[in-house]
Design a protein around this nucleic acid. Structure first.
Lengths: 223, 223
DNA sequence: CCTCGATTCAAACAAGTGTATGAAACGCCC
DNA sequence: GGGCGTTTCATACACTTGTTTGAATCGAGG
């Protein structure tokens, strides 16, 4: 069966590419793991690069299927939408429990996009960004400038992404707690949502009082 | 002059390693750029790995010298300390103006630490972490648990790091504005500080009222 | 049973990798 | 200027990389 070997190679190539990246992975390593001949990668995929590309594509679609985009009832409160949104992002990023190879591969592509799958990544990120901006529309005063909205959005996704990107140092800095359930996705999502909602509440007051943020430094409020 | 060639190799190796990483860089490439023989790397450094290690070390120290750790007058208010801290982090991360190769190299090490310079990275990160926790001690109610303090600290550094890590997508999502001065380090620092202070204000009230965060979902406050 | 296309395989290929070698060139002190 | 340790150089080495090749194997149709 030709399909059989192809699938076997996909299954094996995914995690390896995710761990070592495109350049760090050798076709011999993949073939050995899949128990096929080295010539297979060229026969079935036409080269290492095509195999990689199709693997990323596969990861994209599997991820999409396993963790569908955030969704909420039409009558949901904005704050609830935000919690759902953050939870979804965290689930995608941290994996629900264990970290799937799909996420690691996509994250790797996100940090240093291979020229070939940059469009794929845009397609992956853009809808989530639009979704978040929609939520912020409901949470922030209408007078809020685009500039401020963008910065707030980045503050929110920054909090989420940090737990994956700086994972090494998170576990280093706080020790054992990280591995335990003390930092479950639910807990993290609740914290980030609360933190961000409280921040936006404060900022909204300032905005509506005319002290448009970022034009001066009214930071002595919290002492 | 032997020192001359060594320095020339350092100067050239830094940016190349920063761009392509350890594995992606070839000694021939470095030697060609430095206009020295291929044998030089072995003669002067004993191997590619030692050269890399010393390059990272150099980047570490140059960075330390160019952007010294955050410091403030002893009578500074906690909120002012936070602004100074965030500004310093952003300066280190984004470079004051242009992005230096030192930062790119250290960031690369931070995301996937080479086993050899993991201790170096810890030495780089730990003091800043302690500094931030010190500031939070002054800003948060004394009853705040370690767990919550940690999460808040991560929320703050997450906001900062995001602008470097997801740089590709930041400029993608918001378009031209990113390149202009609309997102200067000062502006970003002010936003992140305000955002975080407002968040901590809100959270502090909840904590002192006994609604310890993260144990339930009191998120319908901001609608 | 034979045939023919599709698939697998061992082996080889050319290019590139980090490193080692031994001779040449240099700089300095006597 | 001669001698000598230091530094440079061209070259070669052993190894790995992705890819190619041509023969061997398989599997169904006539």
């Amino acid at each position: 069966m030709a399909d059989d070997t192809r699938i076997r190679m996909f299954r094996v190539a995914g995690p390896i590419f995710a761990d070592k990246g495109f350049e760090g992975t050798t076709v011999r390593e993949i073939c050995a793991a899949a128990d096929v001949n080295v010539a297979s990668v060229n026969y079935h995929f036409g080269g290492k690069e095509t195999l990689y590309l199709q693997t990323v594509e596969l990861a994209h679609q599997e991820r999409l299927q396993r963790v569908p985009p955030a969704a909420w009832p039409s009558d949901a409160l904005p704050a609830d939408k935000l919690l759902i949104f953050v939870t979804t992002i965290l689930n995608r990023i941290l994996g629900e429990g264990n970290i799937g190879w799909e996420t690691r591969l996509l994250m790797r592509e996100m940090l240093q996009p291979t020229e070939a799958c940059r469009p794929l990544m845009e397609e992956y990120v853009r809808p989530q960004w639009d979704q978040l901006m929609g939520i912020l529309d409901e949470l922030l005063p209408t007078v809020t400038t685009h500039h401020v909205r963008h910065q707030i959005a980045f503050s929110i996704v920054g909090q989420c992404l940090h737990y994956r990107l700086a994972n090494e140092f998170v576990s280093l800095l706080i020790g054992d707690d990280w591995q335990t359930g003390a930092y479950s996705v639910e807990r993290l999502a609740q914290h980030i949502t609360q933190f961000s909602l409280a921040a936006m509440n404060g900022l909204s007051e300032m905005i509506q009082e005319g002290e448009s943020p970022n034009l001066q430094i009214p930071i002595s409020a919290a002492t």
